[in-house]
Design a protein around this nucleic acid. Structure first.
Lengths: 338, 338
DNA sequence: CTGTTAGCGCTTTCAG
DNA sequence: CTGAAAGCGCTAACAG
């Protein structure tokens, strides 16, 4: 039925070991023998069994990636970065959506580990004590992607969310705005929520402005939420002249309710955010935002993982927190205060 | 170092076979023994090795999915549908981007097969003779996702692209439009290109209208392309009053160059397309389009694959071409001809 | 440069 | 209900 390395060996008149060598490109094989073996392989239509190889060699050349939701463009960008580099180093990836649910995250981490992945890339919600415990049972390297744990106990690659938010709010301030509202994510979320809120707060402070409670509203990162939340700002007696949204999607939502209410962006109200999803340049006005290098975060974390898997470097804890640079992308949603 | 089934057996005072039974939920184990084994597992922190299991049982509970580009929202939607159902049936997925490049597609199909996936989901460009050959070397079931092969030789799930385009153009016609241009994809692409173009053509014919060469332009499916191509229509002496784009992204591009040139959508020019990506309702005006059920295509094809893998049904060739329904989503980019 | 020989960790008859 | 034993297909020393 299925042709094995043994069949090839017999067909070529050599030993299994030799066949294994040519299949694995081991140079210690006489060209002549190599040729014989290749012919036998061809003739028999032999296809190496990676599972058997994995059991024998204790390496599967596959890495696990747990991701919140692959259909979310932010994460699918990261995933593309991961897969490109994985591919480059001859790894495959097993993709698991976990929707930022702790239970599900822990569960998939375990099944990935059962599948003997050579490494793990984790992209999720908050990294809790339980996550750390699960990571600890792993004998393969793990790197956090677009997240970090409080203790910096595990390698990670991310941007400085607080600084990104700070920079965003600052362009508003530089444009003369003083009444700046924020559409935040939940403060429970360390990176996209809390950190970005902190950046907003600190930027105001640095400019000697005071934070108004009614200028901060919590959204859920999505477009519809930006649409909703902005209505509240519109009801205020003294409306903000600028809005900082924690994500591009919410910012686009904000722009639309503004427009739907007869306000012009950026003439009447300026809008800025963080992320730089593809859609940011596909709306009118085009969105000014702070670019988070999604693809690079994926690519760099996968590259880091390969190094760890090859033991090119030990997980030197502190040194393993890589922060990628962000950048303000000036487009058309911010104007000087009129 | 690593604890195996043998260690657990010794610890629990039973045989490997018994441990295997409890791990696999085989009912033929006395509750008492089961308990002993579970305790031993707990005590030792035993984690089953799925690779060894895969070798012994010849099943890996993982399926391969080859996809053009996971960062493209169309495909990432499909992927989510696939993963959800896979998860439901306890399968994991190995994801490979192949960018619709034949070479790459064939290559990943082979490595996926080497990894002994239990089934394969293929989403790609044209299915050529070479693809069919590669599929033929497979002993596991394969289903095409959002594509079909000419010969209907392999199971597939997709929508009727021609009919979807036909329906889209028809809403334009129903609205009194007679000068309808099309932004098409390449005619080399059977589904999104050729079939959608055919639908356009047939809708015009059915309405007794003649197709104007200069009203058809080829784009590359993306936003920027829609932006570009539309400029040509603007240069025509008798401009179209409506535009049908093969994809939402190109339609949004069309809307924007229309707007950027002082034309109003839909008052001056109507725009419709096919896809219904998330962004379609995140632009102004919101896009009227024919919804292609991306998530469902993924979900249904994965479900079909599970049936094939369980041999619940043999690949009854002809019967295996499932066509999912599409639906016109009326939003605000189409108006009656003024 | 090539062959022999043990396993890798688990499932699966087959007995009992 | 439980155990013994034979592999699954391949890699990796170790000899030669």
């Amino acid at each position: 039925m299925t042709v094995t390395i043994y069949d090839v060996a017999r067909e070529a008149g050599v030993s299994m070991a030799t066949v294994s060598r040519v299949v694995n490109n081991n140079p210690n094989v006489k060209p002549q023998t190599r040729k014989k073996v290749f012919e036998a392989i061809e003739r028999l239509g032999y296809r190496p069994n990676a599972v058997a190889r994995g059991l024998a060699s204790k390496k599967t050349t596959t890495v696990g990636v747990v991701i919140p939701d692959i259909s979310n463009s932010i994460f699918s960008e990261v995933a593309r970065g991961i897969e490109d580099i994985a591919n480059m180093y001859h790894y495959n990836i097993i993709l698991c959506n976990a929707d930022k649910k702790k239970e599900k995250e822990i569960r998939v981490i375990n099944t990935l580990l059962e599948k003997q992945v050579d490494g793990l890339l984790f992209m999720g919600g908050t990294v809790t004590e339980e996550h750390l415990q699960a990571f600890n049972t792993s004998s393969v390297p793990i790197v956090l992607c677009a997240t970090t744990d409080e203790q910096n106990a595990v390698a990670s690659v991310d941007i400085d969310h607080e600084k990104a938010a700070f920079d965003a709010v600052n362009v508003l301030i530089q444009n003369g705005h003083r009444d700046i509202a924020m559409i935040s994510g939940t403060l429970q979320d360390p990176a996209n929520g809390y950190a970005r809120y902190q950046g907003y707060k600190k930027a105001l402070e640095a400019a000697g402005m005071t934070l108004r409670e009614d200028y901060v509203r919590i959204g859920n990162y999505r477009y519809e939420s930006g649409l909703e939340v902005t209505k509240h700002f519109l009801e205020l007696k003294d409306r903000p002249t600028a809005i900082f949204a924690a994500t591009d999607e919410m910012a686009i939502g904000a722009i639309h309710t503004l427009q739907d209410n007869g306000l012009k962006v950026p003439e009447d109200v300026s809008v800025i955010s963080v992320d730089n999803i593809r859609m940011a340049s596909m709306v009118r006005p085009q969105l000014t935002t702070v670019a988070m290098p999604m693809y690079d975060i994926g690519a760099v974390s996968m590259r880091l993982l390969t190094k760890l898997m090859n033991k090119e470097m030990k997980d030197a804890s502190e040194l393993m927190q890589v922060i990628l640079p962000h950048e303000v992308i000036h487009r058309n949603s911010v104007a000087h205060r009129s």
